[in-house]
Deep mutational scan, measured.
Amino acid sequence: MADQLTEEQIAEFKEAFSLFDKDGDGTITTKELGTVMRSLGQNPTEAELQDMINEVDADGNGTIDFPEFLTMMARKMKDTDSEEEIREAFRVFDKDGNGYISAAELRHVMTNLGEKLTDEEVDEMIREADIDGDGQVNYEEFVQMMTAK
């Protein structure tokens, strides 16, 4: 299944994987998964984290390695993001709930994920998604960005 991913997608997933893999040992533990999910405003229980890991832990060693992570991402993409997942993601970014993602809100979430971005990089990300040019990202623009192939 992971063989249907483009090189660009694999590179993006590698970057995402390293955000989860806090200690850089090449595997994601339940603790690391929990840290990232909490930084995104989720509050999973230990059991939920274990279930999430077990779902993709092909070799049964209790952690997720990069090939397992790729399989999980490929699977998720095949079920292409349901509207509800996209709306949920939008809410994570839209901290003040005004229906727009500002540069400050984007920077806040990315920083929580451990991504240190310059102001230019954040502005560039907003510009790429900002179709109507108002300097922020509304829900429609967010959907376009998330579903762009």
Rank of each mutant, 00 (worst) to 15 (best):
A2P: 08
L5A: 05
E7K: 08
Q9K: 09
A11Y: 00
A11V: 13
E12N: 09
E12I: 02
K14R: 09
E15W: 05
A16E: 02
A16K: 02
F20H: 05
F20L: 12
D21Y: 10
D23G: 13
G24A: 11
D25S: 09
G26E: 03
T27D: 06
I28Y: 10
E32Q: 02
G34D: 02
G34Q: 04
T35V: 02
T35N: 06
T35P: 09
V36H: 00
R38N: 00
R38G: 12
S39D: 01
L40K: 13
G41P: 06
T45V: 06
T45A: 14
E46G: 12
E46F: 03
A47I: 09
A47H: 10
L49T: 02
L49D: 04
L49R: 14
M52T: 12
I53G: 04
N54Q: 06
E55V: 13
E55W: 13
N61V: 14
N61G: 07
T63E: 03
I64K: 01
I64A: 08
I64T: 13
F66N: 05
F66R: 05
F69D: 06
M73T: 13
M73I: 11
A74S: 10
M77P: 08
K78L: 01
D81Q: 03
D81F: 06
S82Y: 04
E83P: 02
E83I: 01
E85P: 00
E85G: 10
I86D: 14
R87F: 12
E88P: 08
R91M: 10
R91H: 07
F93P: 03
K95F: 05
K95N: 05
D96W: 06
N98H: 10
G99Q: 03
Y100L: 07
S102K: 01
A103I: 10
H108M: 14
M110K: 06
M110A: 12
T111F: 06
T111G: 05
T111N: 00
L113H: 02
L113R: 01
G114L: 06
G114I: 07
K116Q: 14
E120T: 02
V122D: 06
D123H: 04
D123R: 10
E124Q: 00
I126H: 09
I126G: 00
R127L: 14
D132L: 00
G133Q: 11
G133L: 03
D134V: 06
D134K: 00
G135I: 03
N138F: 14
E140Q: 13
E141V: 07
F142I: 02
F142G: 01
V143M: 14
Q144C: 06
M145L: 06
